[in-house]
C-alpha cells in the first residue's frame, strides 16, 4: 500500500477474487440445499390441503373422492423424501416443476413476473442509493443545521409510516387529486401493447413510494457515517491542506464512510424485497409479490421452493458483490488473506 504503482496495486487488491468466488460458490451449494430442505419440511408441517386450495370455493361442493383424485394426480400425498428427490431430479434436468396455485410451469410464472419485480427493486435501489449518499453527505457536512434537522425529522416521520399507507396517500394526491400519474397497473388499462414509455409512466409513483419508504434507513446511516469520518485524521488533514469543501466531503469523508455501507446494502436487500411486495399490491403490479403470498397460502411447494432459491441466490450474490466492492474500495482489505 505504500510505494507500489497504482495499476499493480489495483490488480493486487482483487488478486484473491477468483479464489473467493470459488470458495463462496462451494458454500452456496450446501446453503441452497439446506434452504430447499427447510422449505419442504416447513411445507410438510403446513396443514393446508393444496387440493382444497386449488378448488377454491368449489372445495365446498366437491366430493372427497374428487379431491383425493386430484391429490393423487399431483403426487402430493407421497412421502416427503420422495417428493423432495423427485423435485431435485427435475431441477437438475432444468425443470422447476408445475405450480399448483398458478396452473402453469414454475419457469413461466418466474419469467412473466420476476422481471417486473426486479425492475421495481433495481430502479428503486439506484434511486435510494444516489439520493441517500447525496443528501446524507450534505446533512452531515452541516451537522445540526436547518437542512440536517429537517432531513432527520422527515426521515424519522417516514420511517414510522407503513409503506402501504404512503402508497395509498400518494395515489390520493398524485393520481386522484392532481391527476399526474396513473393510480395503478403496469400499462394503461385500454393500452394495446406494453410500451416502455407507458410502463415508465406507471412506475414513477411505485418507485417513488418504495424509495421514500426505504430511504430513511440508508439516509440516516450515511449521515452518521459521514459525520463520523469528517472527524477522522485524514479528513482533517485534507481540510488543513486547504482542499475545497466539495473534494473533502465527497472525495475523502464520504469515501471512508462508504465502506461499511456497501456491506449493509447487501444485508438490507431482503427488506427492500418485502417492501416491494406491498407496493406491488397497492399499485396492482403483476410482480412476484402476489404470487408468493398465494403460493404460501396454497402450499404450492414447487413455486415457493423456486422463489426461495432465487431469493437466496440473489442475497448470496449481493453479499459476494459487496465484499468484492469492499476490497476494491479499501486498500487495507485483502481477499487472498
Amino acid at each position: 500500500m505504500t510505494t507500489t504503482a497504482p495499476p499493480r496495486r489495483r490488480s493486487g487488491r482483487l488478486a484473491g477474487a477468483a479464489v473467493v468466488v470459488r470458495r463462496r460458490l462451494l458454500v452456496a451449494v450446501p446453503v441452497l440445499v439446506a434452504t430447499s430442505v427447510g422449505m419442504f419440511a416447513l411445507g410438510a408441517a403446513s396443514p393446508v390441503d393444496p387440493a382444497k386450495q386449488y378448488a377454491g370455493a368449489a372445495a365446498f361442493t366437491t366430493s372427497e373422492e374428487n379431491l383425493a383424485q386430484i391429490r393423487a394426480n399431483w403426487g402430493v400425498d407421497d412421502p416427503l423424501p420422495v417428493q423432495y428427490l423427485r423435485w431435485i431430479g427435475n431441477l437438475l434436468r432444468g425443470d422447476l416443476g408445475w405450480s399448483t396455485s398458478r396452473h402453469e410451469p414454475v419457469t413461466s410464472v418466474l419469467a412473466a413476473r420476476a422481471g417486473w419485480t426486479l425492475l421495481l427493486i433495481g430502479v428503486t435501489l439506484a434511486v435510494v442509493l444516489l439520493a441517500s449518499l447525496l443528501l446524507g453527505a450534505l446533512a452531515a457536512y452541516r451537522r445540526g443545521g436547518l437542512f440536517d434537522r429537517g432531513l432527520r425529522a422527515a426521515a424519522y416521520a417516514v420511517e414510522s409510516m407503513p409503506v402501504f399507507w404512503i402508497g395509498l396517500a400518494a395515489i390520493a394526491v398524485f393520481a386522484l387529486a392532481l391527476g399526474w400519474f396513473p393510480a395503478g397497473g403496469l400499462t394503461d388499462v385500454t393500452a394495446t401493447g406494453t410500451s416502455w414509455s407507458d410502463v415508465a409512466h406507471h412506475l414513477i409513483l411505485p418507485v417513488a413510494v418504495l424509495a421514500i419508504s426505504q430511504a430513511p434507513w440508508f439516509l440516516l446511516f450515511v449521515r452518521d457515517a459521514v459525520a463520523e469520518s469528517l472527524r477522522d485524521d485524514h479528513v482533517l488533514a485534507a481540510r488543513a491542506r486547504g482542499l475545497p469543501g466539495r473534494t473533502v466531503l465527497f472525495g475523502h469523508a464520504l469515501r471512508t464512510a462508504l465502506l461499511p455501507f456497501l456491506t449493509l446494502v447487501g444485508t438490507h436487500l431482503p427488506e427492500l424485497v418485502g417492501g416491494a411486495v406491498l407496493v406491488e399490491t397497492v399499485f396492482s403490479l403483476p410482480g412476484l409479490g402476489a404470487v408468493t403470498v398465494e403460493a404460501a397460502l396454497g402450499s404450492d411447494f414447487p413455486l415457493l421452493a423456486a422463489i426461495t432459491l432465487v431469493t437466496t441466490a440473489v442475497v448470496l450474490t449481493a453479499n459476494l458483490a459487496a465484499d468484492l466492492a469492499y476490497a476494491a474500495a479499501d486498500p487495507r482489505v485483502r481477499l487472498d488473506g
Binding site: L168, V189, V282, S284
Partner: peptide, 12 residues
C-alpha cells in the same frame, strides 16, 4: 382489470 385490493379498486 384484476385488482385484488378493495381500496385500490375503489381509488382506480
Amino acid at each position: 382489470a384484476f385488482v385484488e385490493d378493495d381500496n385500490v379498486r375503489a381509488q382506480r
